[in-house]
Nucleic acid binder design. Structure first.
Length: 975
RNA sequence: GCCCAGAUGGCGGAACUGGUAGACGCGUCAGACUCAAAAUCUGGUAUUCGCAAGGAUGUGCAGGUUCGAUUCCUGUUCUGGGCACCA
């Protein structure tokens, strides 16, 4: 009997579906385990081999936990709102709802073929009104809450209103907001009160900058802006202020930082989040501005360098710029502001070689020595960080130094010999000079002294600062959750919870609305309501994905987003698998939402993910063909119209390295294409233009192009192509790039599953390497894994003899007279299973697969066909290759599904060893091996080792200096 | 530019806590079976010197710590991911 994987996999996938074996209950006596994959966006291109990497890993672990006796939740769903669907709608007129539905169907059928153990009854889609109803509901909770700094948690905004009514702002520590008394609060009109409350709400509206493209009349995502112009059409893009919604994630900065201590993420992942939050401590202080009744507030982490301040730099967007610029400088400043408008934040920070800035004409006054300090504006200072203004200390800061140098600003040296005049030195270890009351102090000690003095003088105070900014939460787009908000005379009125979901209305056109608003603004009937005008922005992609892990627990609940008893049962996600690209976006947002829901008492835990494992990205290995075109100025064009000439990679390389000239190439072309005219040059130009073109990797075998397939490719575009080969082959060039449809380097899992089966595909994806590492996809090698499964099959079946397994208690189907398994057979099994279990436990699935290969090789070598041995191996194989395991399990005569079998327990008695073949090194280099008992003591070992003739030879009669013996490891003789 | 990660044979990778570098698989070479092919099986396969025994070199690059370093430290190069409106 042959291994007919197609029949087997189809059969069991159907049976599992009919028997609902993956249905998960919220009630169980077993311990729970929650395994989650990062929410996929259902792109139109379908699944490529990169997607399932993490899904297979999580599926293996989920199945493993199930065999180990856990009630495992392993759901899947779709993050189905998003820009690509809308972009596609804009281009083709198809409604995003339609294309999204189609894409999801494709994704699901592709996923199902790989044999995942998802409970599809728990599927969620963020664009489903039954889902986004609760996204909107949570938004309203955020809107109606504020962060209470005394209790350090979110509380209903009504509590704050009460506080204002009773005590005003006395107990509210929010430095950016004006203070008032209780009676003042009562005297404010509604608009004023609401605008004050807006400064406290966790979801709030304010003004922020967007990428505005005048030509397209729309706001663009960063993704859609390339080199300062729009990707579509190449129109100029500039920044513009618009009303936006934000989430006050900054209120949670400290808790997001502290929470990292309680979760099991990789150190690098935590580091990235810490850097993103960017906590720093220092001081905020005010500088008087000469001749103005204005103060310039700066934030600095190095108040010890206060006497080294040689200039001030404001962010170009800073409010003070307009007020302090002198008439002489006005023109220059305006020109500079115009320039900055066209620059993205990224460009402003990354281009350090090009130094730009402009003097405002104004001066700040150093409060300690009265020195007048010129105030500049420069793009390297960003408005969003700190106070949007810095005090520049060129002797201690590289960028300040470069700036001072560029604009010839004199530099004050406060660190003596530590500053060499050629580059800044950011040390904290220097003794301060030229520094007034700080003279003679070590810099790191002076920081505190300076802050104390600043506070004494009342010109500033100690301040902890976070680099993180509040998260922009609105998009001027169609395909997202509508905000449950109505604007009435500038006041935002939330909808009542009973009015949810506010459904996304149907539109026929996806173009932008007037004055930069989203497409919804075009629907006058929808926008206009009796008490005002609806918010026309929609929520961003991360809205739905910030809480989806909760909805999976209780997906059909129409009373609440997730019942508290259910969320208490499933609690945190025990294992979350996904890419590092979400390190600071999605992960921080969902952590924040979780904390808010926790504060409001709606869930019982404040960190969503207990453990996070990052999967690497599978890159594509692109293939190139090299097309030769001729310049019309040299050759008559017509003859090349019908034919396209391609040169093999080797020839292309020679051409590139000038190892072959025009004449040489001409000769090669002539061999296959005799009608080419005589060789010509014009002004020393050969007239050959060679262009690398991406070619579909699926019609290339290794590097060799399948010419017949190529001629059929792209509707016969290359049907008449002519090839200049090397060694009778056309070889393609290659490059590792991101896997993408446009690069023709995507590999579809369906083809591989068809050809080799899901079990082979699953094991091969794991066998490629560690899950967390990025690697290029290469289909070569999948044969090896397939061969392994066939070899495993042959432990049970012989091509001619049929079933060959034996057992001591034969059933009619089986061969009688089986013998009990030998110690050697048990030892081989348990040694293998031990490695496999340990590897699975630590997510080392690639070595887990190789463990199975070693085990099957060994069992084949010792001709072990004992049912009792093979059966245990099958159970351990379920997570990796569920279909073949289930088939063989059932063929062995077992009743019930193997998915619920008990994971084999390792009998350690078979694994005990009494001696070891020790490597013996001389000076760290292995020279021989000696078998020594594991019981041996140091003196015994020394005696055995020194008696060895190889060791004797290397000692050359000299006594050893030292003998290092590490039990169960090695012996090293130092000479 | 800033933050994070990675680099080991022809290729994917293994070596988990500083202890035999190259497990397992691909490819390749030789052989068996076969009229032949496929499938399968057996053996070799880091580089280099040597008939062999055996030796030397070798984990991106340059140093350091150690009896011993792919593993730890310092510096450096290249590649990938992120940088706030792709998801």
């Amino acid at each position: 009997m042959e291994y007919k994987f197609r029949d087997i996999e189809k059969k069991w996938q159907d049976a599992w579906k009919v028997n609902k074996v993956y249905k998960v209950s919220n009630e169980s006596t077993k311990p729970k385990y929650y395994v989650l994959d990062m929410f996929p966006y259902p792109s139109g291109a379908g699944l490529h081999v990169g997607h399932p990497l993490g899904y297979i890993a999580s599926d293996i672990y989920a199945r493993y936990k199930r065999l180990k006796g856990f009630n495992v939740l392993h759901p899947m769903g779709f993050d189905s709102f998003g820009l690509p669907a809308e972009q596609y709608a804009l281009e083709t007129g198809q409604h995003p709802a339609e294309t999204t539905k189609k894409n999801i169907a494709t994704f699901k059928s592709q996923l199902d073929k790989i044999g995942f153990c998802y409970d599809w009854e728990r599927e969620v889609q963020t664009s489903d009104p039954n889902y986004y109803k609760w996204t909107q509901w949570i938004f309203l909770k955020l809107y109606n809450s504020y962060y209470n700094r005394s209790t350090q948690k979110a509380e209903p905004i009504a509590e704050l209103v009460k506080e204002f009514e009773n005590n005003g702002t006395v107990n509210c520590q929010l430095s950016t907001v004006n203070s008032f008394t209780a009676s003042e609060w009562k005297s404010f009109d509604e608009a004023t009160r609401q605008s004050i409350l807006m400064d406290y709400r966790l979801a709030f509206s304010s003004y922020g900058e967007v990428n505005w493209c005048e030509a397209l009349g729309t706001v663009l995502a960063n993704d859609e802006v390339v080199n300062g112009v729009s990707e579509r059409g190449g129109h100029p893009v500039e920044k513009r202020k618009m009303r936006q919604w934000y989430l006050r994630i900054t209120a949670y900065a400290e808790r997001l930082l502290e929470g990292l201590e309680t979760v099991d993420f990789s150190d690098s992942m935590k580091e990235m989040q810490r850097n993103w939050i960017g906590k720093s401590s220092g001081a905020e202080m005010d500088f008087a501005i000469k001749g103005k009744d204005k103060k310039l507030r700066v934030y600095t982490t190095r108040p010890d360098t206060i006497f080294g301040v040689d200039f001030m730099v404001l962010a170009p967007e800073h409010d003070l710029v307009e007020q302090i610029t002198t008439t002489e400088q006005k023109a220059g400043i305006e020109k500079y502001l115009q320039y900055v408008k066209s620059r993205s934040d990224r460009e402003r920070q990354s281009e350090v070689k090009q130094i730009t800035g402009c003097f405002t004409g104004a001066y700040a006054v150093n409060p300690f020595d009265g020195r007048e300090i010129p105030i500049w504006i420069a793009e390297y200072v960003l408005a969003g960080y700190g106070t949007g203004a810095i005090m520049a200390v060129p002797c201690g800061d590289e960028r300040d130094f470069a700036f001072a140098n560029h604009f010839n600003i004199p530099i004050t040296n406060i660190i003596g010999e530590h500053f060499n005049g050629k580059e800044a030195n950011a040390t904290k270890e220097a003794i301060l000079q030229n520094s007034g009351f700080l003279n003679g102090m070590l810099m790191k000690d002076a920081i505190d002294v300076a802050i104390t003095k600043i506070e004494e003088l009342g010109i500033g105070k100690r301040k902890v600062n976070y680099k993180m900014r509040d998260a922009g939460f609105s998009r001027q787009r169609y395909w997202g959750e509508p905000f449950p908000i109505i604007w009435s005379d500038g006041i935002a009125l939330p909808l009542d919870a009973a009015e949810l979901p506010l459904e996304l209305p149907h539109v026929d056109k996806y173009g932008p609305g007037p004055s930069g608003e989203g497409p919804l603004a075009n629907l006058t009937d929808w926008v206009t309501v009796s008490n005002g005008r609806r918010e026309t922005s929609t929520m961003p992609g991360y809205a739905g994905s910030s809480w989806y892990f909760l909805r999976y627990m209780d997906p059909h609940n129409d009373k609440t987003f997730c019942d508290r008893t259910v969320s208490d049962y499933w609690n945190q996600v025990d294992l979350y698998i996904g890419g590092t690209e979400h390190a600071v976006g999605h992960l921080l947002y969902s952590r924040m939402w979780t904390k808010v829901l926790y504060d409001l008492g709606m869930i019982g835990h404040d960190e969503p993910y207990k453990r996070l494992v990052n999967q690497g990205m599978i890159q594509g290995s692109s293939r190139f063909v090299y097309r030769v075109k001729v310049a019309t100025t040299v050759f008559p064009l017509e003859i090349f119209d019908s034919k396209q000439i391609f040169i093999s990679h080797g020839i292309y390389q020679k051409w590139n390295e000038n190892l072959i000239d025009g004449q040489g190439l001409h000769k090669l072309i002539q061999e296959v294409f005799p009608i080419i005219p005589e060789y010509k040059e014009k002004d020393g130009i050969t007239g050959f233009i060679i262009t690398p073109l991406h070619v579909d990797v699926n019609i290339v075998d290794g590097y060799e192009l399948n010419i017949e397939e190529f001629k059929k490719w792209r509707n016969g575009e290359y049907v008449d192509a002519v090839f200049i080969k090397e060694d009778e082959k056309y070889l393609c060039g290659s490059e590792v790039e991101k896997m993408s449809k446009s690069k023709f380097n995507t590999v579809n899992p369906d083809d591989l599953v068809n050809r080799y089966g899901a079990d082979t595909f699953r094991m091969y994806e794991m066998f490629l390497g560690p899950v967390e590492m990025s690697k290029p996809w290469d289909t070569k090698g999948i044969e090896g894994v397939h061969r392994f499964l066939k070899k495993l099959w042959r432990l049970f079946f012989d091509e001619v003899k049929g079933p060959i397994w034996t057992t001591t208690a034969p059933s009619p189907l089986e061969r009688a007279g089986g013998e009990a398994a030998t110690d050697a057979e048990w030892k081989a099994l348990y040694k293998g299973l031990k490695k496999i279990e340990e590897d699975t436990e630590r997510f080392s699935f690639n070595t887990g697969v190789s463990g199975f290969m070693i085990l099957v090789n060994e069992l084949s070598d010792i001709k072990c066909h004992k049912k009792e041995v093979l059966e245990k191996m099958l159970i351990a194989l379920v997570p990796y290759a569920p279909h073949i395991s289930e088939e063989l399990w059932s063929l062995l005569g077992n009743a019930g599904t193997i998915l619920d079998a008990a994971y084999p327990v390792i009998e350690k008695s078979y694994l005990v060893e009494s001696s070891k073949e020790y490597p013996i090194s001389i000076n760290g280099k292995v020279r021989t091996n000696i078998n020594i008992s594991l019981e041996a003591t140091q003196p015994e070992v020394e005696q055995i080792v020194l008696a060895n003739e190889v060791v004797q030879k290397w000692l050359e009669g000299k006594p050893p200096k030292k003998i290092i013996y590490v039990k169960n490891r090695m012996v090293n003789v130092v000479v």
